[in-house]
């Protein structure tokens, strides 16, 4: 798409130790920020995150933290 917003402002944080690799974050993210690698979630493209909060809301082990809101 080529549309990128301001860099290095996003509050998204992933606690890899808590992550169980269920992949729900991958399924709900509208900008393909996550991928599962070796059984754990990875943040591939943090700057594409729009802080919608879908990942943290659906993470069953509360491994994702993001200050979400409508921007």
């Amino acid at each position: 798409m080529g549309l990128k917003y301001l860099q290095d402002v996003v509050t998204l944080k992933l606690n890899v130790d808590k992550c169980i690799g269920c992949g729900l974050c991958v399924q709900v993210c509208p900008h393909n920020v996550f991928a599962i690698k070796e059984g754990k979630a990875n943040i591939l493209d943090k700057n594409s995150c729009m802080e919608c909060g879908a990942c943290s809301k659906n993470c069953p082990v509360s491994a994702i933290d993001v200050k979400s809101g409508v921007g």
Partner: peptide, 14 residues
């Protein structure tokens, strides 16, 4: 920004 599909709250506030 309020209508766009890719802007973050942190960026918009900034």
């Amino acid at each position: 920004t309020g209508s766009s599909t890719y802007t973050s709250l942190s960026g918009t506030l900034k």
